[in-house]
Amino acid sequence: MSGLQDLYREIILDHYRAPRNRGELPVPPAHLVEGFNPLCGDEVVLYLEVEDGVVTDVKTAGQGCSISQASTSMMSAAVKGKPVDDARALIRAFKALMSIHESKLEGAEETDLSADLEGVRLGDLEALQGVVKFPVRIKCATLAWNVLQQGLDETAAESEA
C-alpha cells in the first residue's frame, strides 16, 4: 500500500479526523466564501477576517473527502494570523507543490515552479505532496486554496471600494 500511504499520510488523516478551526464567524465583519467540487461534491466554506492586511481569524465549514477536508484544515492553520501577502505566497507555493502552472500562456517561458516554492515554509502542508501521484485528487487538495484566494481577492476589493 505504498502509493496509498503516500496519499494518506498520517498527518493528513489527523487533520481529517480532527479538523482545526471548524466553526463560524459573524458576517460581517468576517467575509464568507464557498467553493464546490462539482465532480465529487466536495464543499469548502471559509469565514475570513482580514484587518490591516492581516488574516486575523479563519473558521471553516463544509464536507467532503479526506483530502479536501484535511487540506482545508491545514490551510486554515497555516494562514491564521499571517499577513495577507504571506497567505498569497503560500497559495502560490501550494499550487506549485501540486505542480499547477499558473497563467501559462502559449509560447511563454516554462514557469519555474521552484521560484514560487523558494523561501516559503510549507511545513505540514508538504504531506499533501503525495496527492500529485493521483491526478484526479489534485482538485480535492486545491479546493480550499482556491476558496482562500477568492476570499482574499474579495476582501481586498471590498476594502478598496
Binding site: L4, Y8, L39, G41, S66, I67, F134, R137
Partner: peptide, 21 residues
C-alpha cells in the same frame, strides 16, 4: 468515510468501483 476515499483504497486492491453522484 467519504465515497471517494473508499473508491481510492479499494482500487489499491484492484477493485474498480464508481464514486460520485
Amino acid at each position: 468515510i467519504h465515497a471517494h476515499d473508499v473508491s481510492q483504497v479499494v482500487d489499491e486492491e484492484g477493485v474498480c468501483v464508481r464514486a460520485g453522484h
